[in-house]
Simulated assay, not measured.
Amino acid sequence: MDKGTVIVGMSGGIDSSVTAALLKDQGYNVIGVTMQIWDGGCTPSNGVTQHACYGPGEEEEIAQTEKISRQLGIPFHVIDLRKEYKHHVLDYFRQEYLFGRTPNPCIKCNSKIKFGALLDNVKKSNISFDYFATGHYVNVAYNETSQRYLLKRAKDLKKDQTYFLFYLSQEQLKQCIFPLGQYTKEEIREMSRQKGFGLENKPESQNFVAQGYTSLLEGATLPGPILDTQGKKLGEHKGIHYYTVGQRKRLGIAAEYPLYVVAIDHTNNAVVVGPKEDIYSNRLIASELNWISIDRLSEPMKLSAKIRYVQHEETAWVEPLENGDIRVTFDNPQMAITPGQAIVFYDQDTVVGGGIIQK
């Protein structure tokens, strides 16, 4: 039975390859697509190609994806998104760091590129489809009462990626299929073995840029003072983009006790440091919000929240402010609340929404 045509965003890795295989086995007409985003920048000086989202290893990944597509007997297309990726991800990333913030490029790439520009350009290529699928470990459900699509945690909680997809809109969720949400990583590896993909031991991309993120900031170095929380100068930094809130190593300051980056003052080009207790806070302000399970936040809600991917959720009150931002007050102080990073809210296994930490 033909269930319709689904575009699968493929990368040459095990997750997206098994996604395509699963959907074909389920009766979908599957078309593989992959993004071309590397424009020749940030080439490792030692000639060693690392596994990264952006870098010279892309050519190898595209070839691998084409091989898997032939093996599955599905059409395959490469979509050139170099211009869009530079604008929405690379330029954004650079600007955020130069303003003393710590951005999350994966979240921006998902919302603007994978689930945005990629599909827009597929349509411009006259490739018709009904659904879009990726190898993310998440689930989607429809709530009849609220008449909203919901983003839910994956079966494999260790691989759950809902944190990275909180910006998806109702229209995007309506069109999405995430087959891996019902499986564990080990089950996916076994499926790959059964299909003969040979991807079971392939390392996953852990880096954003092949040569390290600072390669995107070359030429932007502007030295300035390292201050304590009272404004006393303790040393010099080589550029605020080399530092992030909560950082302890590579400060280059001798002190009687360990020092941590407490804040980054872009206006004065200063890095502020202090003892560990100074990097704890129970309150933050967030903006650039997106709500999934609700239309908007009209009154305070008690939710669980996480301020980074590798963190357990913490209980917090979330209050709407008159300017459209929200104030979040945690029951317990949180370590290194970092401007530029995402905060995502949960109600049990359902994503309520999220935003970007401002302060």
Rank of each mutant, 00 (worst) to 15 (best):
G47C: 10
V344E: 00
G239H: 02
Q175S: 10
K155P: 04
Q95M: 09
I294M: 06
K202L: 14
D325H: 15
A141E: 14
S125K: 14
T134N: 11
I326E: 00
G219F: 15
K195P: 07
P223G: 03
P203K: 02
Q170P: 00
V140Y: 12
A316W: 07
A154V: 05
A117Q: 14
L284Y: 02
I226V: 15
Y309G: 03
E236Q: 15
S304D: 09
L180G: 10
H237F: 04
T267L: 12
S192G: 14
E59D: 09
T145L: 10
V8E: 03
G4Q: 11
T267C: 09
W317P: 00
G27I: 08
A263D: 15
G212Q: 02
K123D: 08
P44S: 12
D325L: 04
W38D: 09
T49L: 12
K86E: 11
Y167G: 01
E171I: 03
N332S: 13
R148Q: 10
Q311V: 04
E60W: 04
K195F: 07
Y97F: 15
I113E: 08
F115G: 05
E61R: 07
G57R: 08
E277I: 11
T329C: 11
S45C: 07
Q348G: 04
L150S: 02
G181H: 11
C109T: 11
E84D: 15
Q334K: 12
E58F: 06
V352D: 04
V122E: 05
L98G: 11
T350L: 02
S146N: 10
T244A: 09
P333R: 13
I177T: 03
G12M: 05
L173F: 06
L321M: 14
Y131I: 05
V89P: 00
R283H: 13
D2N: 15
L227D: 07
P300M: 08
P75D: 13
Q358T: 11
K233A: 10
N126C: 12
P203I: 08
G47Y: 13
K123P: 04
K185I: 03
E190W: 06
M191G: 01
N282D: 14
L23M: 09
F345S: 02
K108E: 11
D278G: 01
I356Q: 02
N29W: 00
C53D: 09
Q230R: 13
K276P: 05
S169L: 06
F208A: 04
I62H: 09
E204W: 02
Y28A: 00
V351P: 00
F208D: 03
D349Q: 13
L157C: 05
I253G: 11
T229R: 13
K233R: 15
F93P: 05
G355F: 04
F76L: 02
R148T: 03
R308I: 04
Q194G: 03
W317T: 14
A305K: 00
Q194F: 05
L303F: 00
E218Y: 15
T350F: 07
I343F: 01
